[in-house]
Nucleic acid binder design. Sequence first.
DNA 1: TCCTCCCGTCACAGCTTTGCCACAGGGGCC
DNA 2: GGCCCCTGTGGCAAAGCTGTGACGGGAGGA
Lengths: 214, 214
Amino acid sequence: MAIELALTRQGHQVATAATGEEALELWQTQRPELVVLDVMLPGLDGFEVCRRIRRTDQVPIILLTARSDDIDVVVGLESGADDYVVKPVQPRVLDARIRAVLRRQGNGVADIGDTAVFGDLVIDRAAMTVTRGGVPISLTPTELKLLVELSRRPGQALSRQQLLRLVWDHDYLGDSRLVDACVQRLRAKVELVPSDPRLIRTVRGIGYRLDPPR
Amino acid sequence: MAIELALTRQGHQVATAATGEEALELWQTQRPELVVLDVMLPGLDGFEVCRRIRRTDQVPIILLTARSDDIDVVVGLESGADDYVVKPVQPRVLDARIRAVLRRQGNGVADIGDTAVFGDLVIDRAAMTVTRGGVPISLTPTELKLLVELSRRPGQALSRQQLLRLVWDHDYLGDSRLVDACVQRLRAKVELVPSDPRLIRTVRGIGYRLDPPR
DNA sequence: TCCTCCCGTCACAGCTTTGCCACAGGGGCC
DNA sequence: GGCCCCTGTGGCAAAGCTGTGACGGGAGGA
């Protein structure tokens, strides 16, 4: 069938079933990475196959069908399918949808969300946690905010005034050791050798910069 | 807009942006569970917004558009979107697709279907029950809602304001001990040692976070 | 070499933030 | 109508964070 050919061309390994029962058997024996199911199958229809697979397995399922009724889409998705595609479909569209589903599947556990990595320093901006070599570092709110702002602009020198505005949210114009003091406290917790900072570098006459390693 | 209304009716909490820039800002401040993006936006278009969000965040994104060109679908999905829906769309179809994407998103550690597991704490969001070590814990409606919202974003720090919006549904700007009080009551029931919380962690200067164990 | 800024460092006092508690109003259920 | 549970508020104390000013050292320029 045309779809099988197209998927094979796109580099997927494909096994095909002619009936719903056959599909279930294939799924059990082959344990595929992803299932593409036509709804109109002899024997068990696609919805039913989908539901049976879902009873025990979280394998990604894409329903494929010529029926484009809204109600079918809803029923299909509520049977546990991950996507519902209406035929006719361009091979590359199907491929894109397959990859979207697989992509989502891929990062199930170690979800690298809003995270920045500098050497062995990991800044998780979603959890608002910082670890070095996997060991959590306890930072105060201001230190954390400062580090986050620096990490948003890696390798870019930020003036004290910019930092005051970003972190402290006030336009200080006078001379102040405020930023320096906070940077010092941050270095004490974050740098391996605080007296020889490798991450938070001083830019003389300007301010500070968070260096990406190497 | 019609879609917002429909989604609200379906029980979702909705925040709307008029431009791409606004969307990015909303995403950053509100940390939604899912983003629905129209491709045709003034300013940055949906593809670009999608790509920018994807640089740092794995939040589910559904692209919504009147353009049904195959190439658009492919471009959209390759921008990192999880689904691509062509307008006009029936509200319940959109809802089904939203729920499919959310279901697919293996949220955190041992999230089976609508159940979240944190150590020996099991939150069944379908049954709206919570057990610890198999023993049911009786929570008040507000406590339950708070725990559910936290469990939907495991490991992510949520500000008091975000929690007020999610759980209490009001935009409080002033200082309030409301969230703290509820967290304290929740901890008393949920934590093994309430004075040394392991699940609901305080993020000083921010708010709270539900930690996935280890 | 010397001088001049600029930056690192430190300690402390004030203040913000949070945990905890008690209480009263209100809503729901009998 | 009465009772009970839930919920929001205010207060209090403790913990911990933060900003400031002074001082010394070091880097860079003359």
